[in-house]
């Protein structure tokens, strides 16, 4: 079974100017373990909001590629976002769920995906045509390439092993995370434009 840290490291290899949003908890620790940088926006809260936050970013920056990495529990809390994304069809947005079928931050309780709920089928049903399930390491290279070459939204449900990794925490100050990200995307004008 795939290891979530290996998956994230593989997907973020040679990422160029890829913008990355991570859902709260383990996904945020995973992108930080792969290397914290201003083009990362790790969330500390707002459970259920990661994918649609990525939509807002993708619509505001249509020439940049946006990747949302989140967990199955976080995605399950905001399934409507898949409909909202499918309707807007941003060409530059990918959503990757690291599906370990558990709420790993809260004691390892089972999520709905443990009981057969198929997030990729839900995404496909919403209208995201390229919705895939990833089980093997050999599928990560093609997924990474697709993230950099999409012409329509992409959804991938990557099955990963349950269990917790050592904490690798990103900065916690929300204003700092916002300011460094906006400066990375918009330049120094980010702090002056109104």
């Amino acid at each position: 079974m795939l290891d979530r840290r290996d998956v994230v490291r593989a997907l973020l290899e040679d990422r160029g100017d890829l913008l990355v949003v991570a859902g709260l908890g383990a996904s945020a620790w995973d992108i930080t373990a792969a290397g914290d940088c201003p083009n990362n926006f790790p969330l500390w809260g707002g459970m259920g909001g990661a994918a649609v936050l990525g939509l807002g970013l993708a619509l505001a920056q249509p020439q940049r590629r946006v990747l949302v990495i989140t967990g199955d529990g976080e995605m399950l809390m905001g399934l409507g976002a898949l409909c909202t994304i499918a309707v807007k069809k941003p060409a530059n947005l990918s959503v990757v769920v690291l599906d370990n079928e558990h709420y790993s931050e809260t004691g390892g309780q089972e999520t709905a995906t443990r009981h057969g709920v198929d997030l990729a089928a839900i995404a496909r049903g919403a209208g995201i045509a390229d919705s895939r399930v990833v089980h093997g390491a050999q599928e990560l290279g093609p997924l990474r390439q697709a993230i950099h070459a999409t012409t329509a939204p992409l959804f991938a449900n990557v099955k990963v092993a349950p269990g917790n990794h050592p904490l690798v925490l990103p900065p916690r100050e929300g204003a700092y995370l916002t300011a460094r990200f906006r400066e990375a995307v918009l330049g120094p004008a980010a702090h002056h434009q109104l």
């Binding site: 926006f41 649609v52 807002g56 993708a58 505001a60 940049r64 909202t84």
Partner: peptide, 14 residues
């Protein structure tokens, strides 16, 4: 609530 998260993303993108 999607709109709250979405518009944070819009702001991040300028």
């Amino acid at each position: 609530e999607e709109g709250v998260a979405m518009l944070v993303g819009s702001w991040l993108g300028g």
